[in-house]
């Protein structure tokens, strides 16, 4: 029942944040950041297990591991970008948060280009010339 731990942690952190925000908003921000980091660290263990299973399935299926690696990197970029953007937006800097999200999208696009190229080449080869 890890979800109870997570929810309890979130509630406690929220209450403490509300208490401190009156006096020192900076500490409240750091507390919120730290809570986010803790929940992410907690979840990443679970994600690692899922990734192990995916890797095993991919090797069993004889898949090229480059594709799996690219997908994992894309998920990681989405993860970090989302985290940074949420923290930044929480601190009231919506503009910087949007830029972080934009950077995440563009980096994901750059990573996906080899896969897109392979798909398009395959489709072109299938077409009768």
């Amino acid at each position: 029942m890890e979800i109870i731990q997570i929810v309890g942690l979130g509630l406690v952190a929220t209450i403490l944040t509300l208490v401190i925000k009156e006096q020192k908003p900076m500490f409240a921000f750091l507390l919120a950041t730290f809570t986010g980091v803790m929940i992410f660290l907690f979840l990443i263990g679970k994600i690692a297990e899922v990734i192990r299973v995916l890797e095993r399935l991919a090797t069993q299926a004889g898949l090229n591991l480059v594709y799996l690696e690219t997908i994992l990197k894309i998920i990681g970029i989405a993860y970090i970008a989302e985290f940074g953007a949420q923290i930044t937006r929480d601190a009231g800097q919506g503009a910087i948060a949007s830029k972080i999200e934009l950077a995440g999208k563009i980096l994901i696009l750059v990573m996906a280009i080899p896969i897109i190229t392979v798909i398009i080449e395959t489709v072109i080869r299938l077409l009768p010339s």
Binding site: T33, F34, F40, L41, G76
Partner: peptide, 30 residues
């Protein structure tokens, strides 16, 4: 006093963020 307290907390949070980033790098095969 406010500045020193802030720096202490910032150091703690920065350590944990660094942990998170290394963990993400390790998990997602960067």
């Amino acid at each position: 006093v406010t500045l020193v307290g802030f720096i202490i907390v910032l150091y703690m949070v920065a350590t944990f963020i660094s942990d998170l980033f290394t963990e993400i790098k390790r998990t997602f095969l960067f």
